[in-house]
Structures are given as structure tokens and as C-alpha cells.
Design a protein around this nucleic acid. Structure first.
Lengths: 138, 138
DNA sequence: TTTGACCTTGGAGTATACTCCAAGCTTTAT
DNA sequence: ATAAAGCTTGGAGTATACTCCAAGGTCAAA
């Protein structure tokens, strides 16, 4: 079991963030020590990694709560509910991937086209390439 | 040229958002009409689409400003600056894509495994699958 | 010509997600 | 035994990104 500070360091987040997530029902401590200290197990670590990843790709804490509640709120959802919610999230994720592929393509084009030298960027083809970034993104 | 309301509707954002972006140097109106109304051209439309996409995949307005300033701030950056900044962003984008691929894999697994019926989700295999989501995400 | 829809500005208010602080208890090291 | 580091709570403060409002100008249609 980890104390809050240990888990925080392992995840590169603050202890305040962990307490904030507990207050907002995203992740409760696994248990409490006799002295009242929060204790977290490996499962909690994995859930936090999940939350951090989800945040990184643009899900709000509220949306992440929704994703996590599939797990937590078992009895209150039917299979049909869960399936349709999950399909919806899958569509969202696919859309996000598609957008990022566009960014990736544009940026790769820019990197490939740029001379990388010391002259002013005014004369660098990377900039003209970026000016067409939206066209590329389609 | 579009008036602010027309552009806002085309993009499904509020006019307040467009004025907010102008105030925060993300996108100025292309010009002003004689009556003081903001006017936007097709280029502005494309820049806004770019901003909206970037936001959707988790870039902050500040980061987006950085991306846009490659375009705007030509004379103040060398080619080497621009190239290294762009390569850094590319790494970020690749990381985000990898994370989303994990989500996608997990969610697809869940959708495929779920019966989709009316019974309580307690008995649905989609949930047990989700409990291993972090393992799947690796 | 006047009603309604649209635009202007500046500034205040809100939601989200932290982040910091005070006051105090616990534990570890010297 | 006492200091330093770590934990507790509740609550206040901050950054980001809007969102709304007031007071007023503009414009097209009835």
C-alpha cells in the first residue's frame, strides 16, 4: 500500500490532486491507516494512470467519471446502457485519433520541409508549409 | 466575409468565444466594417477550425497560440527554432495518438464482449473486461 | 418609423481543475 | 525530546476558458 505522498510522486501529480479526486468521487483511497492516513493499492495506481491518460487526450473529469462509473456503478446500468455508452465513447475516441492524425501529417510535413538552419524563419519553407496546414488537415 | 454571428454559427461556437479569442490574441477579425462590425474571411474560418480541432485533442489555448505563432511571428524565430518546436509538438501528438489507441483497443474489446441485453450490468462481461482496462492499456 | 435582430465595449460571473494555506496530529531521525 | 517531514481537514485563492450582462449603436423589414 502507498501513502498519498508516495502515490503522488509515482504518478508525478500533487497530493492535493489526489485529495481533490477523492472529494470529487473519481478515486477514493483504498483504505485508511489507524492514524487516518490514506492508503492506496496497485488497483488505485492503475485507476489513476487511466485518469491521467484520459485527461491527456482531452476527456474532462466529468467524462472520466462516466467512464469509471461503468466500473463502479454496476447494478444501476443494464448491459444495453453500458454497451451504448461505450460505443459512443469509442466514436469520440476515433474522432480524436483522426484529428491527431491530421496534426501529425501536417507537423511531419513541416519537419521534413524545414532546413533547420540559423537564418530567420521568414525564409524557411516550414512556414509556407504551415500556412497550408488547414488545407492539409482538410 | 462573415459577420461574427455567421462565423460563430458556421463553427458552432458562441460570438463571445470569438471575441474572447481576439482579446487573447488567438484570432483577430480580418477587418472591420465601417460600422465597426468584425469581418472574417475564409482564412479566419480555417484558423478557427484549426483551433477547435487542437482544443479537442487536449491542447490549451496557450499551446495553440504557440502553434499559431510559428505562422504569425515569422521574423522572430530562426529555422532551427521552428524545426525544434515543431518536432517537440510532433512527439506530443504521437504520444497522444498512442494513448488514444489504448483507449480504442479497450473500448472495442468492451463493445465486442458485451451482450447488450436488458439484464443488470452486474452480469455483463463488458464490465469485467473494463476492470482489466489498465492492463490492456499497459 | 419603430420593432427586432444584430453588432459594439467593458466588466462581472461561472465552471473546471487544481493549488495553497492554516491549524493540528503522526512518525522518523538525531 | 525535539525537530523535520508527512499526514489530516476545511476553506480560500488561482488559472483557464469561457459566458453573461448592461448600455448603446446599426440595419432590414413591416
Amino acid at each position: 500500500m502507498y501513502r498519498i505522498g508516495e502515490l503522488a510522486e509515482k504518478l508525478s501529480v500533487s497530493t492535493d490532486t489526489l485529495r481533490y479526486y477523492e472529494k470529487h468521487k473519481l478515486l477514493a483511497a483504498t483504505s485508511r491507516a489507524d492514524n487516518g492516513y490514506r492508503l492506496y493499492n496497485e488497483e488505485a495506481l492503475r485507476v489513476m494512470q487511466f485518469i491521467i491518460r484520459a485527461k491527456g487526450v482531452g476527456f474532462s473529469l466529468n467524462e472520466i467519471n462516466g467512464l469509471l462509473s461503468i466500473k463502479i456503478d454496476k447494478a444501476s446500468h443494464s448491459c444495453a446502457d453500458v454497451k451504448s455508452f461505450t460505443e459512443q465513447k469509442l466514436t469520440q475516441v476515433n474522432d480524436k485519433i483522426a484529428e491527431l492524425q491530421c496534426f501529425k501529417g501536417s507537423l511531419e510535413l513541416l519537419v521534413a520541409a524545414c532546413c533547420g538552419g540559423e537564418e530567420e524563419a521568414t525564409h524557411c519553407s516550414i512556414l509556407s508549409a504551415l500556412e497550408n496546414v488547414d488545407a492539409i488537415n482538410k
